[in-house]
Amino acid sequence: MTRKIIDEIGFGRTLTRLAHEILERNKGAGNIAIIGIRTRGEYLAKRIADIIFSIEKKEIKIGLLDITLYRDDLKEIQYQPLLKGTEIDFDLNKKDIILIDDVLFTGRTVRAALDELTDLGRPASIQLAVLIDRGHRELPIRADFVGKNLPTSLDEEVKVLMKEIDPEDSVVLKSLKEGGN
């Protein structure tokens, strides 16, 4: 069973709100850079950078993070993930880094991303922005900016769809339980 949680209009609104919150907290776009965690974090990072540009008229640096090499579950997963590579062509040092991912769940992806960022440099701060926080944390990690808090059960799956690679912008909740109603 699939349920739409955020539709296209809500999606845009949520991103705009996140952009505003980020600017407010950091007192403008002066020292921030955005790093998206691949795959969908990449597109979220670009969208938010665009919104910030439309508000502040300022280009923000964007980097992409592939955390595969830092995963703690490489041995357990069935299919070997394809490496897409980390692309950060600016200096992280002393920047306020906004780390963006689509869904915050166990916290393990963020843990891997934090480890990788630490190896890449020494930012002034790292702040976490996510579109959905679905709970069930396994590590002591929380987001600084949350698009929507969505209580879920473990047999549900949250899917973020984005026009760049999907048919539409939306967030859906899928129940993985057979014959659930």
Binding site: T68, R71, L83, K84, G85, T86, D115, D119, L120, G121
Partner: peptide, 17 residues
């Protein structure tokens, strides 16, 4: 290997994989 070429350019040329 292209990914690892990038890792080799990092200040810390090491990943925990």
């Amino acid at each position: 290997a292209t990914t690892f070429r990038e890792v080799l350019e990092r200040p810390i040329k090491k990943v925990p994989t």
